[in-house]
Design a protein around this nucleic acid. Structure first.
Length: 595
RNA sequence: GCCCCUAUAGUUUAAUGGAUAAAACGAGAGGCUUCUAUCCUUUUGAUGUGGGUUCGAUUCCUACUGGGGGCACCA
């Protein structure tokens, strides 16, 4: 209802401007900042005042007069104000239309703003030699958020990851496992021996470690050995060569440590509710990149240096050149990424491709995109590097401190969720809320809500200072606040005796619920804005707004008072509940009905 | 040295070039015989600095300062 109304007004405004000889004007109708300024507002008068050689306010008044002759139904009044804004005030019927849509479950649904588009989003490509920390968490939440928001706007979306499952890092992992995870320290560090005596090595379970932590420790220990003994580096390098040659024993060990790695990572990602539609394995495509480089060489796009390495020519893109192939003929990250990009594009017939990767890869991404355009794989404008700010900790002096594995300041995802969970659970126990079995289930869901929301409520591009004590706080602008508001709606609906079926009619004048109703019909444009910015923080902010207005209204008015206004109020309560639930779903947060 | 990102109350964060810069935490005051007080009401307090574009700038341009990242055969 609101949508059609706005389209009508937009058309009328365009008509008016046409009479002023402004063809195809840019008519922007936006949400009014404040309810004093109505429900929607437009700045066309200020924008085109000069063209019409009129004062903005005079033009605005002329436009208002014109619109009044049109008398669009649903608009109560249109006013021209101070600098030249034109404000639209909707009628109560329009204001309650969202609630009526909600009663028939037609509100807060997906829209079609991106329908027909196919997007491929790569996010959270795991690092097999590290435990999942807050940096990975941000990548995952930003990535999954983008996948969902695109989906809610009607796009077809493929979520993907790349497993970098070969190369020197994995070999270090293999070595670290072999050398340091033996049950008997005297045993040989020897692949052949390991193959036939696997039970003499620890598993993560036997070490009582989560698998990703186990693997991370193998890696750290290997690095330490290498630093003190160059001979070990040779051993590790030989493993890479043997792996490439297809040595069966090496492959067996490789699979063994990777399984640990994946199981640890997947455990955390499953907890987070993360999902991929497709996983690419580096070992399956890493050789193919070289063909693209030779093709580019033949076409004269790239240059071969004296030592045999291949260099880009990115002068026309105004970005620094980079090496595409090493002088020994082996490939680099970018070499493989060229092949993979083409593979992804061909496999999915994608319109747009997104890489959710940290900002330190910014130049490398631009280089990749440019090279892909040169090779005819796709256009730079269809490739999108979505970055996100660093997750840092609060330093002792109050400043931003990067997490560092060397300094031992890396905060792991599971630890944070567990800590928040224990605070919530403790409160349940103290207040004797819920059955013990239910306490665990609820506190897990609430902890996930709190942690996810705290990451998603701010713009992804900003650096984020993570304060553990603050993350545990369940008051204020938080996922818990939104959840609590939702729980309230559900609790009221449960207590209500009546069934919500018949449509509600609007009162002549809206009461305390006016602000809330106004906010509820902005849902759709929040979704569109979020998709445009590829950031779900707009949704999170909106949920805080809806929650806050709902709680304010709740504090002022009694909903279940037995009067004939009950049905009207209950419909609004249901609408709020539906809105919050849908919004939380976009953020990847499961709602609970009680807490 | 060059390139990119970034700077908002004491703190953590909002604000398609728009109206009085919005919240939360903290600090102060108040509110549950009432639908879940993990709530509500209220006080306090901010756009790094200098120019410019604009009817209008937190937003765009420019210089400076501070912070972060990157710069060819690592991943």
């Amino acid at each position: 209802m609101v949508k059609q109304l706005l389209e009508q007004v937009q058309a009328d405004l365009a008509d008016f401007l046409n009479t002023k000889n402004i063809s195809s004007p840019d008519v922007l109708i936006e949400r009014a900042a404040n309810s004093e300024f109505g429900d929607y507002t437009t700045n066309v008068a200020m924008r085109y005042a000069k063209t019409c050689s009129m004062s903005p306010l005079a033009l605005a008044e002329e436009i208002v007069n014109f619109l009044e002759t049109k008398s669009v139904s649903g608009i109560e009044k249109v006013v021209a104000v101070k600098p030249g804004f034109i404000n639209f005030f909707f009628s109560p019927e329009v204001k309650v239309s969202t609630a009526n849509a909600a009663l028939s479950n037609q509100a807060f649904k997906k829209n079609a703003s991106l329908s027909g588009q196919k997007w491929v989003v790569e996010h959270t490509s795991p690092n097999p030699n590290k435990a999942m920390h807050l940096g990975h968490l941000r990548n995952n939440l930003v990535g999954m958020g983008i996948v969902r928001i695109l989906n809610w706007n009607g796009a077809e979306v493929v979520a993907e990851a790349v497993y970098n499952d070969r190369g020197i890092a994995i070999a270090k992992l293999m070595y670290g496992f072999l050398a340091h995870m033996k049950k008997n320290a005297e045993a040989e560090t020897n692949i052949a021996y390991w193959t036939s005596h696997q039970s003499e090595w620890f598993t993560p379970e036997e070490k009582e470690m989560k698998a990703d932590r186990f693997v991370a420790e193998c890696y750290v220990l290997a690095e330490k050995d290498i630093a003190s003994n160059p001979e070990i580096e040779n051993q590790v390098r030989k493993m890479v060569v043997d792996w490439e040659a297809g040595d069966e024993l090496v492959r067996q060990l490789w699979q063994h440590v990777l399984n640990f790695s994946y199981s640890g990572i997947n455990q955390t990602l499953t907890r987070l509710g993360s999902h991929w539609d497709k996983i690419w394995y580096e070992h399956e495509h890493y050789q193919a990149g070289k063909d693209y480089v030779s093709k580019g060489l033949e076409q004269g796009i790239f240059t071969k240096l004296e030592d045999g390495a291949v260099l880009t020519n990115l002068e026309s893109f105004k970005i620094p050149d980079t090496i595409l192939l090493k002088n020994d003929g082996t490939s680099l990250y970018i070499t493989q990424d060229i092949a993979l990009t083409d593979l992804k594009r061909k496999t999915h017939q994608a319109d747009k491709m997104v890489w959710v990767i940290g900002p330190d890869q910014s130049l490398a991404m631009r280089q990749l995109f440019a090279v892909c355009e040169q090779l005819g794989i796709g256009k730079v404008s269809d490739f999108n590097h979505v970055t996100y700010g660093y997750v840092g900790l609060k330093a002792d002096d109050g400043g931003f401190q990067k997490m560092s594995s060397r300094a031992g300041t890396v905060v792991l995802i599971d630890d944070v969720i567990d800590e928040v969970k224990s605070v919530i659970k403790q409160r349940f126990v103290e207040e004797e809320r819920h059955e013990p079995s239910k306490q665990d289930e609820l506190s897990e869901k609430l902890a996930l809500a709190a942690v996810k929301f705290s990451f998603l409520k701010s713009d992804r591009s900003q650096d984020m200072t993570f304060d553990v004590s603050q993350s545990v706080d369940v008051h204020g602008d938080s996922g818990i606040y939104v959840m609590y508001s939702y729980v309230r709606t559900q609790s009221i609906l449960r207590k209500a005796a009546r069934v919500l079926s018949e449509e509600i009619s609007a009162p002549e004048v809206l009461g305390e619920e006016a602000e809330l109703l106004r906010t509820l019909f902005y849902f759709n444009e929040v979704l569109e804005k979020s998709a445009k910015d590829l950031s779900v923080h707009h949704v999170a902010q909106y949920l805080l707004e809806v929650s806050s207005e709902f709680n304010r209204w709740y504090a002022k008015e009694t909903i279940l008072d037995g009067s004939d206004k009950e049905a009207y109020r209950l419909a609004i309560v249901k609408t709020v509940g539906d809105c919050l639930k849908s919004g939380m779903e976009i953020l990847g947060i499961d709602v609970v009905d009680e807490m």
